[in-house]
Design a protein around this nucleic acid. Structure first.
Lengths: 201, 201
DNA sequence: TTTATTAAATACCAAACGGTATATAAATAT
DNA sequence: ATATTTATATACCGTTTGGTATTTAATAAA
């Protein structure tokens, strides 16, 4: 029916926005929000500053878009984890997939949502809070899933879904720091195995 | 014998270096290396830039000195933890004291050694590596202690001292991120309690 | 009292920061 | 063909960055 290629009005963009966004994502992932300079971004994307600004708004907007792409791409697996049949499988999947993902050599080590803006100047408070919300959000996803497991009888009513979720989130965030510092996949898997020994059922 | 007050040669320094270092430490702790600007540092210390530079060298030197002070002061307890009588007490002490320290309202939340320079520009690679070494160093302190515990019969020969140490270090680093993101002492203590359930002996 | 030494205060530096004004080029709509 | 729209490229903006040259003040040694 309608043509796939939209005929836009003005001069056509010379670069692919999604490809550019992927490159920007990699810079932000590696450098953090503050550590990624517009200069490095434009060089890596192969475009000029005005092109970057007309396409993405400003640095903060670009970061937000790269972050959305990160959430929908590399770490999309987290959202699916809650579909595992048991709470134990959810926890295992979360820890082991984290260990693998965080040390994967095909992209920067560690998690962008964890390290994107931890300690930085006052000017980055907005970005810092966005990342805090993301972290809270996936921790909450786990907590809700474990609460359901308690109702299902999969976990005991004496288990604390929120504490279990925070335990996993804490491990994930710690593993992210470890990965950035050079820890190997093997080491993190061993940590994950050990961590799973607390699992109640 | 020798006088306590050294009579220095030139014009006397108008400020106390240790007090200034404490203030600098707090800024670096809160902002990270990159996020702490010379402007904020001089304002907080109440001294001018040339005074800061003659007293401490440059930003990197000041950071290193603040970091030494941090290691010898706020987190000195970590070095003493290995003196606990059993491996279990070492682990408990490490996790519970971390939970308390990281959320203590009397100073910035989280650990400077963890968050001082995680993701940042290329120019901070030296500082990044210094912090990695600090983290490796205290993880190693724990590993050595647990190896001794294996020899003592306090831990089984089937336990892996390095994995146990990395497990604790990972939790500490994760708790640091949690503390910075607003987690309470109570929440982190619950995580620590849960984490201790894996303990082999 | 002079000299040497060290710190203070003011003013300044080049470079990098995020961001834009201006002009031009390339497309569609009329 | 012309007008409109949007992206490009070049050059520029003020601000902030970490760091200093220069002068002056305060002490101890000679």
């Amino acid at each position: 029916m309608t043509n796939e290629v939209k005929k836009m009005r003005g001069r056509p963009r010379i670069f692919d926005m999604d490809e550019a966004l992927d490159k920007a994502l990699e810079i932000f992932w590696k450098r953090g929000y503050e550590g990624a300079s517009i200069a490095e971004l434009t060089e890596t994307l192969g475009i000029t500053k005005p092109s970057l600004y007309t396409a993405f708004g400003n640095k903060e907007e670009l970061f937000k878009k790269a972050l959305s792409r990160y959430a929908a791409g590399p770490v999309a697996f987290v959202s699916n984890i809650v579909n595992e049949p048991t709470a134990r499988k959810v926890a295992e999947s979360f820890l082991f997939k984290s260990a693998e993902f965080l040390t994967d050599a095909s992209h920067p080590q560690g998690c962008m949502i964890v390290q994107g803006a931890l300690s930085s100047g006052e000017s980055t408070d907005i970005v810092k809070n966005i990342l805090i919300n993301y972290r809270d959000s996936y921790e909450n996803l786990l907590a809700v899933r474990f609460q359901k497991a308690i109702v299902d009888g999969d976990l005991s009513s004496e288990d604390d879904s929120k504490v279990l979720a925070k335990y996993l989130a804490t491990l994930h965030q710690g593993m992210s720091v470890q990965a950035t510092s050079g820890a190997t996949k093997k080491e993190l898997i061993n940590v994950a195995k050990l961590a799973m020994k607390i699992w109640p059922s």
